[in-house]
Amino acid sequence: MKSVLRRLGLDGRSVVTAVPYLWLLLFFLIPFVIVLKISFSTSQIAMPPYEPLLHWAGDKVLQIKLNLGNFAFLVEDNLYWKAYLNSIWVASVSTFFCLLLGYPIAYAIARSNPSARNILMLLIVLPFWTSFLLRVYAWIGILKNNGLLNNFLIWIGAIDQPIQMLQTDFAVYIGIVYSYLPFMILPLYANLEKMDLTLLEAAADLGCRPWQGFMKITLPLSLPGVRAGCLLVFIPAVGEFVIPSLLGDPGMLMIGKVLWTEFFNNRDWPVASAVAIVLLLFLVVPMMYFQRAQDAEAGGVHR
């Protein structure tokens, strides 16, 4: 066995490298090429529901039929670009609130005493281990008209009529912030926890008040954590499907939902592919940014 591999010029190292590499190429990279290909083809009622790009026209003449119609369709129909812009807007707002909520929590945990830290962090990630779908579902019970929150507000006398909260943008923001909060807190905590606290003492010694010390020392040093956390929330939130479909208005335009509808309801695979390609183009910059940040992090530890 070994000698066979050797003869093929494969040592242990290249086999170890090749196995995960080939897997990812086949099941992660090539699929995108196929999506790109299908986004240029024409829809038809068949299985699979699209026409091939290449076909034999007469003798040995290979014809390529590139159909840019799907992309033109995306531009012409303002439903699509509204959905893109709205998704980016919703993701940005949610990321902002995630940060607003996540930073103080991460900070409070990182500055509590060491024996409590691990338990508190465990409590932060614990919900993650239970079903995401069920946690989003829980908010339906809280936000609906005769739900917990409305009942509570009526009971304390703040309102006398239930407010429509479910099926609004507000509910979607709550859902995203709630589901993605651990992803914001984790990198922030990792960053804040390893900060050298004598830096703050040095700043205080040099005349900095605690608030200034936070603004001038802690905050700038925690920016890599902020960046990682924001990307970890923003990128997947743009394409979110489950939260807007369970908590949002049925007419809410989110690109993840649009793609889903094109694919499952309209069975228009080429348009769905074009939607995916354009969404990917929107996300490629933040994703490369994330990849670089991730690499820098790994490089920092690795010598």
Binding site: P31, I34, V35, G239, G256, F263, L280, M287, Q291, Q294
Partner: peptide
């Protein structure tokens, strides 16, 4: 390294669609 980190943040609708088409 890109191929291993991308699935972490890739919107699931894209991954799902592309795998199905594959």
């Amino acid at each position: 390294s890109g191929l291993t980190t991308a699935p972490l943040v890739m919107p699931e609708v894209i991954t799902g669609l592309s795998l199905l088409l594959l």
